[in-house]
């Protein structure tokens, strides 16, 4: 399966990645190669193989419902670019 330029643009947009015009053909080629590998794998007969949700053959351990975290707002917000009244500030996201 081969991806074209529009596919690359769409994927980049969904991932919020800015890509350079001249790099697009290479990305298209690389991504197509990955999909070719997937196609190869698709050819294998997996009729009796159960789908795998995780590479580790283990199940999720559960945590008790206890509040264990304390307020560390000051520390956690010390790395934020903009903070006011305890809120993180980000560029406006709606009109």
């Amino acid at each position: 399966m081969s991806l074209d330029r529009t596919d690359v643009d769409k994927i980049a947009h969904l991932a919020r990645l800015q890509i350079e015009e001249q790099d697009a053909p290479e990305y298209a080629q690389n991504l197509s190669n990955i999909l070719d590998l997937v196609d190869q794998m698709q050819a294998i007969d997996t009729t009796n193989v159960l789908p795998m949700a995780h590479p580790l053959d283990a199940v999720q351990r559960l945590r008790s419902d206890l509040v264990t975290e304390e307020n560390q707002r000051e520390l956690l917000q010390s790395v934020a670019p903009a903070v006011e009244n305890g809120l993180f500030l980000v560029p406006k996201v709606i009109e």
Partner: peptide, 26 residues
């Protein structure tokens, strides 16, 4: 629940902003 689905931060309503948001939530 008392704590969040994936962290031990409190879920109580009405706290000061970001005082119940731990490293996992962030």
């Amino acid at each position: 629940t008392k704590s969040k689905i994936f962290s031990g931060a409190s879920t109580a309503f009405g706290a000061e902003p970001n005082t119940q948001a731990c490293a996992v939530d962030l």
